[in-house]
């Protein structure tokens, strides 16, 4: 099945038609999407700045990461679901958009990075464990903040 057929099939589905017909669905879902962006980006910046050694350095790294990571995971689920509604509503516009696919690639990349950097800290519950920021972690934390900003730019540019 070619991609055009898939797009045409999604477009003609009752769900896609319903999303387009109810004028309030898209702006409401987009508002939910932005609130979830705020949660994931806020939690990412706070915990990444702690990992980079510039924020709340008197608090143990593991404690800060464990506090914010569940919020990032929950926000990611909300973002994927609200994003899916937008894709189903306008598959003919979104699924052929290069910026959309770049954004999807970057989301996978930055969340994998987020998870890999935090995984060792999420596992240890020992507050006395060695806690100083090692140089690669610092660089990766800054990289993750930059990548989230690029993701937000891509998201806005999909519309153009």
């Amino acid at each position: 099945m070619s991609s055009e057929l898939i797009i045409a099939w999604i477009y003609a589905s009752p769900l896609s038609t319903a999303i387009r017909d109810m004028f309030w669905v898209v702006p409401t879902v987009q508002s939910v999407h932005i609130v979830a962006i705020a949660v994931i980006f806020g939690a990412a910046v706070i915990s990444d700045l702690r990992l980079a050694g510039v924020f709340a350095t008197d608090e143990p790294m593991g404690g800060v990461v464990r506090r914010y990571y569940p919020w990032m995971r929950a926000a990611l689920i909300v973002l994927l679901l609200s994003g899916l509604v937008m894709v189903i509503g306008e598959p003919d516009r979104v699924l052929v958009n290069t910026t959309f696919w770049l954004k999807m690639f970057l989301v996978v990349a930055v969340f994998t990075l987020t998870w890999l950097v935090r995984r060792p800290l999420l596992r240890t519950v020992d507050p006395a464990s060695s806690d100083d920021e090692k140089p690669p972690i610092r660089v990766l934390a800054w990289l993750s903040i930059v990548l989230w900003c690029v993701v937000i730019f891509c998201g806005r540019w999909i519309a153009y």
Binding site: I34, I37, A38, V39, F41, G42, V45, I152, R156, W157
Partner: peptide, 14 residues
Amino acid sequence: ESVHVIGIALVFGT
């Protein structure tokens, strides 16, 4: 708009 959204995310997030 993109910078506005990044700003919103930090305002609301913090």
